[in-house]
Nucleic acid binder design. Structure first.
Length: 923
RNA sequence: GGCCGAAUGGUGGAAUGGUAGACACGAGGGACUUAAAAUCCCUUGGCUGCAAAGCUGUGUGGGUUCGAGUCCCACUUCGGCUACCA
């Protein structure tokens, strides 16, 4: 029997499918383990070898946990709504669903080729009405709840209404867009529209005016993680800021819980830190500044209350509501001109152009502590969206204020002893405070931290301001002016939004004739005929963003066919939450925040039993491409090999990596690759054409895309799986390099040769030798530890060592080989299944039991210590394994080899590390 | 600017503070073969040496330690994320 990967892999993939080998069902007798991959967006390009890296790693863990006796849930599905399918639809008129289905079929085929143990009966697709019913349902729940800041949880909006009826806003503790104050009578006097608008201020899903990332070219709003450096990630079109009336989710209400929840998660420090930064908690103070000759009071936010005596001016964001309130009539035109100028700059222009700009409003404010008059400026370096959109500027101790002060020649007052502010500001929060005494407050001589605390106490006592915690985390904008997304379960009656009743769900996405906005500028859904309720009320024209469908999909996998609930109680109580989540770091501030928010909300409603969705997170690294180059001599059709290229004037040209092997060009394939190369000539080295290489992003234009299907075809899925793991630590980014894959392929053949020699079956029932038992138990110990630690590259090495040892030992013992097959099964399931059955088993190797190692087989009779003098190893000393440390020391000193080193020297110290080393320090 | 991570042979990468370079690729040599492929064996960080052996060596400079690739401090370079967040 020869190792024929194609036959073997096809056969077992077929059997697994027929037998539903990987079907997961609730089983109270077994502990559960939920392993999840971030589901892919099925793009038209299909998978390249980088994509399955994380899937292979999680697949290994899923299979391992199953062998360890866990009931494993390992599902897969598709994040099916997305811009590319919609863009394609606009260009071609092809319905996005058609494109998406086609892409999904292609993805499925590619995934199946690799032999994953997904339970496909649990597949979800976000664009499936049976699925998005629950996305719509969750939205209705968010609309119908508000966030109680005292109880720190979501509560029914009806409770809030009852409170308003009874006491107005008195004693209300609710997360809100802005602070409102009204009495019960005022509430009762409101008409329906006013009440609706008021409640929008509190609802978790609400309509509000927000600055959004607007992409005119795509005709839609984009999420922050869909924008990079001022252009859209998809398409690279410019993005501008625009104020729009949009559906939003009050994610900010959960800021503190999202921050606190990180503590108990087994996520990498870097991703937790990224989330902490994104949430951006900052503890400071809000302070009131009166405007001179006016009754306007401006509220500012600062974390440096101690620097209030160094405030030499104030700055307002151009969009700030205070600008109109304070600007003097003679400055009006100038200020307005500046605001217009800023408005027309895109985010990108603002970033490139870091010039200091601003304009004086003509007004002065009064420093509440020193009583000094300070000018009020407007500048775009102050952001409207953070804090109050107004700051007190302390140029001596803030670099941005410093740059502004220098540019406009404003005074700079140093407040910290020894700080030289002639060239730059001193931003550090340390040192002794000076120049800070006025009125009833004296901070001089205090440490900065003490001064901050003292100032905070003072302003609270005097009613000048209050201690305030700010979060950078903003509410999520939830509307998209697109077709290919979940429709909102919303209709409008007299201009007031209402939710559809739950039994109308799912509200299905209607068919439309074109996928473009309407002539009147409405979103594409404006084209849908009969897009209204049976009563004739207009339905919402926006659709939901990409993260809507991906925020709770992990819950749906637990109970994917339930039409009564997102997830049934029984299923949720059993599967609870994801034990291991594998995916890329690019979702750190998008999906991973929104999912946590979504889950916490459902937790507040008692719909799910765990507060956090993903217990442990592993971020697989990115696989970069490894491009190959040929060197064409200028103005010729002659190509020169890498080693000789410096002798000519050459142009490097990307060449398809699939016609290069171990950096050697397949010359005939190259000639056939492009018509213009058909007549190409070559200058070879040793009869070969050697290509150059470089690490670049894996993309079609670099001709460095490697399709897993090609690898599977040539070497088999098992080789691909092992090789991807062998490349290096899963979490590390690395270039794909097909050179080296032969090594793991050889390993599988060597493994095969332990079982077969030609057609001869080699396995015997003879007693295993001590050395083979040692080899295999060493392997069990190593692989068990490595899998738990996610160190798969060293596991693969351990397998290679073990197989080499067994080959050398000519070990064909059934006992040893059975264990080997079980251990390797998570990594190379096909060949192991084949060998497992060849060993006479009826059931799948998936149902075998993970072997335990026995230390006894690993124990050495004798131990060899390297004996060192002053840390340099000099000779080896072999003693019985349980020799006491003192006797090892004695043996080392009396060994004849030691005499040479001890001659004429005194022994200062002898260090014996049991089992490891003897070091003799001589002087 | 902020945060995080990395730096070890020709290459990918191993090393609970204890013989650096496991394992694999590549390269060189050899066996088998008419030949090639496949397979197997040997060598492979650098320097000196016929050899035995010795010296040197984990980005740079310091430190802790009997002992540092590993821990601490400073620096250099390269990646990733994030960014006028007051």
């Amino acid at each position: 029997m020869e190792y024929k990967h194609k036959e073997i892999e096809k056969r077992w993939q077929q059997r697994w499918k027929e037998d539903k080998t990987y079907k997961a069902e609730i089983d109270g007798k077994k502990p559960k383990y939920y392993v999840l991959d971030m589901f892919p967006y099925p793009s038209g390009a299909g998978l390249h070898v980088g994509h399955p890296l994380g899937y292979i790693a999680s697949d290994i863990l899923a299979r391992y946990k199953r062998l360890k006796g866990f009931n494993v849930l390992h599902p897969m599905g598709y994040d099916a709504y997305g811009l590319p399918a919609e863009q394609y639809a606009i260009q071609t008129g092809q319905h996005p669903e058609v494109t998406t289905k086609k892409n999904i079929a292609r993805y499925r085929e590619q995934l199946d080729n690799i032999g994953f143990c997904f339970d496909w009966d649990r597949e979800v697709r976000t664009c499936d009405p049976g699925y998005y019913k629950w996305t719509q349902w969750a939205f209705i729940q968010m609309f119908s709840h508000y966030y109680d800041t005292r109880e720190q949880k979501a509560k029914p909006i009806a409770d809030l209404i009852a409170h308003f009826e009874a006491k107005g806003t008195e004693g209300v503790h609710a997360a809100a867009s802005k602070e409102l104050k009204f009495k019960a009578e005022q509430w009762k006097a409101m008409d329906e529209k006013q009440k609706s608008d008021t409640l929008m201020n509190y609802r978790i899903a609400y309509l509000g005016n927000t600055m959004v990332n607007w992409c005119p070219k795509l005709g839609t709003v984009l999420a922050n993680d869909e924008v990079s450096e001022g252009v859209s990630v998809r398409g690279g079109y410019p993005v501008e800021q625009k104020l729009m009336y949009q559906w939003c989710l009050r994610v900010s209400a959960y800021a503190e819980r999202l921050l606190a929840g990180l503590e108990k998660l087994q996520w990498s420090d870097s991703i937790k830190e990224t989330q902490r930064n994104w949430i951006g908690k900052s503890e400071g103070a809000e302070m009131q500044f009166k405007v001179k000759d006016s009754d306007v009071e401006m509220t500012i936010f600062t974390t440096r209350a101690d620097t209030v005596f160094g405030v030499t001016f104030m700055v307002l964001a151009p969009e700030s509501k205070y600008v109109d309130m304070v600007t003097t009539p003679e400055k009006k035109a100038e200020v307005e001109a500046y605001r217009q100028e800023i408005k027309h700059k895109t985010e990108r222009e603002r970033m490139i152009d870091k010039k200091v700009s601003g304009v004086w409003t003509g007004a002065y404010a009064i420093n509440p502590l020193s009583g000094k008059e300070i000018p009020i400026w407007v500048s775009d370096y102050v952001l409207a969206g953070y804090g109050t959109g107004a700051i007190m500027a302390v140029p001596a101790h803030d670099s941005r204020d410093y740059a502004f002060a220098k540019h406009f020649d404003l005074p700079i007052i140093p407040l910290i002893e020894g700080a030289d502010v002639s060239e730059q500001s001193y931003d550090a929060k340390e040192g002794k405070v000076i120049n800070s005494c006025g009125g009833e407050l004296d901070l001089n001589g205090l440490d900065v931290k003490e001064a901050i605390a003292k100032t905070k106490r003072f302003i609270e006592e005097k009613g000048i301001g209050k201690v305030k915690t700010n979060y950078r985390l903003r509410d999520a904008i939830f509307s998209r002016q697109r077709y290919w997304g979940e429709p909102f379960p919303v209709y409008y009656k007299d201009g007031i939004p209402h939710m559809l009743s739950e039994d109308c769900l799912p509200l299905q996405l209607p068919e439309i004739d074109k996928y473009l906005p309407t002539e009147t500028g409405e979103p594409p859904l404006g084209r849908a005929k009969g897009w209204e309720t049976p009563e004739g009320y207009k339905l919402e024209l926006n659709t939901m963003p990409g993260f809507a469908g991906s925020s709770a999909y992990y819950l749906r996998y637990m109970d994917p066919h339930n039409d009564q609930a997102l997830v049934g109680k029984e299923a949720n109580d059993y599967w609870r939450s994801v034990d291991l989540y594998v995916g890329g770091t690019e979702h750190a501030t998008g999906h991973l925040i929104y999912s946590r928010f979504w889950n916490k909300f459902l937790y507040d409603l008692g719909k799910v039993c765990e507060d956090e969705p993903f217990k442990k997170l592993i971020n697989q690294g990115m696989i970069q491409g490894r491009s190959n180059f040929v060197y064409r001599i200028k103005d010729t059709n002659t190509f020169v090999s890498l080693g000789l290229k410096d002798k000519y004037d050459v142009t490097p040209i990307h060449v398809d990596v699939n016609i290069v092997s171990n950096d050697i060009l397949d010359v005939e394939a190259f000639k056939a690759w492009r018509p213009e190369y058909a007549t190409a000539e070559f200058i070879l080295e040793d009869g070969k054409y050697v290509c150059g290489w470089a690490v670049e992003k894996m993309s079609k234009s670099m001709f460095n895309v490697v399709n897993p299907d090609d690898i599977v075809e040539k070497y088999g899925a098992d080789t691909l799986r092992l090789y991807e793991m062998f490349l290096g630590p899963v979490e590390q980014s690395k270039p794909w390099d097909t050179n080296g894959i032969d090594g793991v392929n050889r390993f599988i053949k060597k493994l095969w040769n332990l079982f077969y020699k030609g057609d001869q079956w080699l396995v015997t029932d003879e007693k295993s030798s001590a050395e083979s038992l040692k080899s295999i138990h060493k392997l069990i110990k190593k692989v068990t530890a490595d899998i738990e630690a996610f160190s798969y590259n060293t596991s693969v090495s351990a397998f290679m060592i073990c197989v080499n040892e067994l080959t050398q030992q000519k070990c064909h013992s059934r006992e040893v080989l059975e264990m080997l097959v079980v251990l390797l099964a998570p990594f190379a399931p096909h060949v192991c299944e084949e060998l497992w059955h060849a060993l006479g088993h009826e059931s799948s190797v998936c149902d075998a039991q993970w072997p335990d190692w026995n230390e006894e087989y690993l124990v050495e009779k004798n131990v060899t210590y390297p004996v060192s003098f002053n840390g340099k190893p000099r000779f080896n000393l072999t003693v019985a394994v349980d020799t006491p440390a003192a006797d090892i020391e004695k043996a080392a000193l009396s060994d004849p080899a030691a005499a040479k080193w001890l001659e004429g020297k005194t022994v200062k110290k002898v260090i014996v590390v049991p089992g490891k080393i003897v070091n003799i320090v001589i002087g």
